[in-house]
Structure formats: structure tokens, C-alpha cells
């Protein structure tokens, strides 16, 4: 199986898989903390419209997907800021509009574009070019740098927005920043996992990690390692069995979640101190 690494497409695939495996759960942990697990799905669907437009006009898909995903994520965040119900509705509209727009523009594009659309929907590393890879490395570095600069603030806002505001942390800026970072992550994952499943690699490793961890940072690190394990093992399985890498990677991360939830978490819980519940919940 290692022999396949002599091919350039496979080398690019491994680098892309490492990037998405490591980076996606780092953003995912912030999304899960804020109960925004579906935001990545919404922006993934919107990015599809960007891909459709790129195929229609014969432009580069990654910049267009990135533009569409960022606009979509920021729009959802702005509407969500106004009202939680409207935010939910906005997410639904993004889902429907994004996929409809993507399919519509691809239908209008040259015939070969339909095959290309599948590769963006479900991931296809064999078609990733060197320039795609450079773009992915650049976006990944951007995400990690933003987290080093604003990660503390983003965490504080996620823990308690009111207290963050009292401490003069710009809460709206941080919410928009998280939306943009999740949109960028969607674009990084687009080639590997596909737009329909990219959110899974952001969320599932986090859900698996938190079965065992006791802190936010350990969840982030462990989730990232599980993401890496899923993406690399999924990639090599897809090479050998000839199935798309996206579904394989997601299935592996789901299996890890099931294993940790059913086997490891109960063992871990036994070692925890007993919880004393509230005796009276005051108004």
C-alpha cells in the first residue's frame, strides 16, 4: 500500500488529508461549544454554489468556494445574532439554496462538469493539483495563526458571552471570526472529504474526544489526533479498496466515536467523583 506514495497525486492526497485531519477538529471544538455543529454543513452547501459558479464560468473552484462559504457563514452568523429562531431558519435556507445553486450552475456548465461536481460533493484527491495543495496549506496556516491570536477570546466568548462583554472582548467580531474560520475549514476539507461530509470531520472527532477528556484544550488536541487518524487511515483504505475517501474517513471517525462512547467513556466515568446535584434551583 505504501507503494502508492510514489505517485504525486497520492503524496498530495496525504498532505491534504493531514491538513484537514488536524485543522478541522480544532475549529469543530469551538463550533460544538457554541452549539453550532451544523454551521459547517450550511457553509459546505453554500460553497457548492461557489463551485457550481466556478465550473460554469470556468474559473478556479477553490477561491469561488471560499468566497461563497465565507459570505454564507457570515450571513448565518449575522442573522443568528438577531434571533436564534431566524438563525436556524437562515441555516436551512443556506442548505437548500446552496445545493440548488450548485446543481443548477453545474447543469448549465459543460458536460464534463457533472463528474467534477461529484468530486467536490464526496471528495476526490486524485484530481487535486499542486496549486490546490498550496492554497490548502496557506488556508490552514491562516486558520492556525488566527487561533493563536484570537483563540483565547473566542473561547471566552463561547464560555459566557455576557462576561466576555463585561471584560470588553469584542464578541461580535469573535463570532464572525469563527464563522469565517469554519468556512475556510470547509474549503480545506472540500477536496478530501467532500462538501457534503466536510462538517463531519470537524464535529465527529470532537464528539469522540469529549467522551474521555476533562478540558477544552485536551478535547481540542485529542480531537485533532482522532481527526488525523481518521483521515490518514480513511485515505489509505480508499486507495486500496477504490472507494471515495470522504465517506471512508467519516465512517472511521464515527466508528471511533461509537467505540469511545460505548467502551471507553463508561470506564472513564467510573473513576470520576460523584456529582452533587442542585438542591434547589433558584430563580
Amino acid at each position: 500500500m505504501i507503494d502508492i506514495l510514489q505517485y504525486e497525486f497520492a503524496q498530495r492526497a496525504v498532505v491534504a488529508a493531514i491538513l484537514i485531519g488536524l485543522v478541522a477538529p480544532i475549529i469543530g471544538v469551538f463550533l460544538v461549544q457554541r452549539r453550532l455543529a451544523l454551521l459547517g454543513d450550511g457553509t459546505g452547501h453554500v460553497a457548492l454554489t461557489g463551485v457550481g459558479l466556478a465550473l460554469f464560468f470556468n474559473w478556479a473552484p477553490i477561491p469561488m468556494a471560499m468566497l461563497a462559504a465565507v459570505i454564507g457563514a457570515v450571513s448565518i452568523e449575522i442573522i443568528r445574532d438577531r434571533s436564534k429562531v431566524a438563525g436556524d431558519l437562515a441555516l436551512a435556507l443556506m442548505f437548500y439554496g446552496g445545493i440548488a445553486g450548485g446543481v443548477m450552475f453545474v447543469s448549465l456548465a459543460p458536460a464534463s462538469s457533472s463528474t467534477a461536481l461529484n468530486s467536490y460533493l464526496f471528495g476526490s484527491l486524485t484530481t487535486a493539483s499542486n496549486s490546490d495543495l498550496i492554497a490548502l496549506i496557506f488556508i490552514s496556516l491562516l486558520i492556525v495563526t488566527a487561533l493563536f491570536i484570537w483563540g483565547r477570546q473566542m473561547f471566552a466568548v463561547g464560555v459566557d458571552t455576557d462576561v466576555a462583554r463585561v471584560l470588553k472582548i469584542p464578541t461580535k467580531f469573535n463570532a464572525i471570526l469563527l464563522a469565517v474560520l469554519s468556512a475556510l475549514t470547509v474549503v480545506v476539507g472540500m477536496r478530501v472529504v467532500g462538501l457534503l461530509l466536510v462538517s463531519a470531520i470537524m464535529i465527529v472527532p470532537v464528539a469522540a474526544a469529549q467522551q474521555l477528556t476533562k478540558s477544552f484544550k485536551s478535547t481540542m488536541i485529542f480531537g485533532s489526533l482522532l481527526g488525523l487518524l481518521s483521515s490518514i487511515s480513511g485515505l489509505f483504505i480508499s486507495f486500496s479498496v477504490d472507494i471515495p475517501p470522504g465517506p471512508t474517513i467519516v465512517m472511521i471517525s464515527l466508528l471511533l466515536f461509537v467505540f469511545l462512547a460505548l467502551v471507553a467513556a463508561p470506564l472513564n466515568r467510573r473513576s470520576r467523583p460523584k456529582v452533587v446535584k442542585h438542591e434547589h434551583e433558584g430563580k
Binding site: R35, F155, K214, S215, F216
Partner: peptide
């Protein structure tokens, strides 16, 4: 506040 289920250590919480 309501949480999404991500664990937060006591140290991390106080750091906010």
C-alpha cells in the same frame, strides 16, 4: 450558560 457538551476544566473556566 448552556453548553454544547465540550468539557471545560476549572482552570480554563477561571481563565476567562
Amino acid at each position: 450558560p448552556l453548553q454544547g457538551g465540550v468539557p471545560i476544566s476549572v482552570m480554563e473556566y477561571v481563565s476567562t
